[in-house]
């Protein structure tokens, strides 16, 4: 796939924290409309990688392009320089993120959370954004919760609000960092079924998850990370039935 056709294109991405190497020389291209699940043992760098994609974490080397546009550093080739804050902020509007611990804004209602960035960052008319926000909330089964504050919601409902907040940006890509691992077991299903629905609609998503059967079911591509590197990129059936590396085999067939 040509670099410019990819929804996300990563080249030579490295990250260290004060000399401690966490990501090493990562290259990855993800096609638009596909769902990618990132798997790997704890500490392998999955969250750090995801956070580099929207520059919440600044890589120590390498580049990230979202829908053909560079993020974090502007210019091409070797002559790049750090983006101005304003430019970085506006680039981020095409990549939404869903966090493990929801990270909703507690002082805003559910609908306020969903319309905040569309209205104040994208400059959409408030009326229109609210209408669309309510429609999105209806889709994730939260019609009645639009006007309450997040603290009154269950974990599963909070995460569905967080997903609605992401959808309201009409982003090119949505990043999920373990969207269900802070949830009580009985609430995992409701969040997964929303994500499953989005995958079916052809959104471009990158999901870090430990839910193996879910990954197998919805992913177009599995990315397996270990020790800060991508060890395997494969279709789910290939990855789960015939992993190429020992590490992946050990990871899948954990006792």
């Amino acid at each position: 796939m040509a670099e410019t056709d990819a929804a996300i294109s990563v080249r030579g991405l490295c990250k260290d924290f004060d000399g401690f190497e966490v990501l090493r020389d990562i290259d990855l291209d993800l096609a638009p409309g596909t769902t990618t699940c990132i798997l790997g043992p704890s500490g392998s760098g999955k969250s750090t990688f995801l956070r580099c994609l929207n520059w919440l974490e600044e890589p120590s080397a390498g580049s990230v392009h979202i829908d053909g546009k560079p993020i974090g550093r502007s210019g091409n080739g070797r002559a790049t320089r750090p983006m101005a804050r304003r430019e970085l902020a506006s680039t981020r509007t095409s990549i939404a993120m869903v966090f493990q611990h929801f990270a909703l804004w507690p002082h805003l209602t559910v609908l306020g959370n969903v319309t905040e960035a569309p209205v104040h960052v994208l400059g959409r008319p408030k009326r229109e954004a609210e209408e669309e926000g309510r429609a999105i909330l209806a889709r994730v089964g939260l019609t009645e919760k639009a006007d309450v504050y997040p603290h009154t919601l269950s974990g599963g409902q909070k995460q569905r609000v967080a997903i609605s907040r992401a959808l309201a940006m009409r982003p090119k890509v949505i990043l999920f960092d373990e969207p269900t691992s802070a949830l009580d077991p009985e609430m995992v299903g409701e969040v997964l079924s929303v994500i499953r629905e989005l995958a079916r609609e052809g959104l471009t998503m990158v999901i870090v998850t430990h839910e193996m059967s879910f990954a197998r079911e919805i992913a177009d591509t599995i990315v397996f990370m270990d020790g800060g590197r991508i060890r395997e990129i494969a279709a789910p059936t290939d990855f789960f039935t015939n992993p190429q590396s020992d590490r992946a085999r050990r990871f899948i067939f954990r006792p």
Binding site: L56, A89, R92, A96, M97, A103, L104, P106, H107, A117
Partner: peptide, 30 residues
């Protein structure tokens, strides 16, 4: 103010002045 909801604001493209005006100050007032 919880760092995670400031980080979420960055992730959604809010500028620094928006983050102060829309996320931090309203919470601080309360």
């Amino acid at each position: 103010v919880a760092p995670d909801n400031i980080e979420a604001a960055h992730a959604f493209g809010l500028s620094r002045s928006l983050i102060y005006r829309r996320i931090i100050l309203p919470q601080v007032a309360i």
